[in-house]
Design a protein around this nucleic acid. Sequence first.
DNA 1: CCTTGAACCTGCGGGC
DNA 2: TGCCCGCAGGTTCAAG
Length: 272
Amino acid sequence: MPELPEVETVARGLTGALKGKRFAKVELRRKDLRIPFPKGMAAALTGRRVMRIYRRAKYVLMALDDGNVLIVHLGMSGRMQIIAAKTPPDRHDHVIFTADDGTEVRFNDPRRFGLMTVAALKDLDEHKLFRHLGPDAMSNAFTPESLTKALKGRKTSIKVAIMDQRLVVGVGNIYACESLFRAGISPKRKAGTVAGARAAALVPVIKEVLAEAIAAGGSSLRDHVQPSGELGYFQKAWRVYGREGESCGCGAPVKRIVQGGRSTFFCARCQG
DNA sequence: CCTTGAACCTGCGGGC
DNA sequence: TGCCCGCAGGTTCAAG
């Protein structure tokens, strides 16, 4: 489910539900997700107050009142959703948070590609999950110059390159396809040849697509919902993703190819 | 270091 | 109806 816009949407939705409250109860309904939960995680969270909830890369972070931060990744199919009290647990409700005012938030993830762990906030930059990451796509550090430098000499495709979180953070499969379409760049172009005018075109387009998707509450393909339960609706704005054989608008059919093991959708006429 | 491909896991839709 | 195949918003690891 989660690229940058979906994770941002989840972080914002959880802010309204949990910020300033304490975890009265944290229930782990299994011992691991993609990786094991840290030993004693539930006990360590219980009684802690949530000071701030925000996104970093594709992770939701909850800063706690003890200097630690709860790190949540939603994998491909994860949700964090506010659930009415007494709702019977779903088989994929892996973690249930109950706040001191009774608010209940559940982490649900059928495929269990997500993860949840706790770390010291001050050490986050050096944390294994974060230290290799490039500039966030929505930050001022992501510029045509930074992208050109990151791509220099790369012989992989531009599509695969902009999904590489070491080069730029937050772009996943949907928004890579949509951004390259808007920028008129072929996904098959060698990454190292995206520089100068092409980089200057691509960077603002990526920011624009992500910003529009955030404003729309993300894209609901199958799993993504906002914490409120409301769907995202940016999927209505997709021009190429998931639209093989349809027209992007120019009349030529959208093509699907596989790059780096992922589907790429593009218009061979509009994306030179 | 770079690049590629497989692996992790469940569910759903399409084709026969 | 039922079964098999392919496919899905991500990340990590091994091998070349």
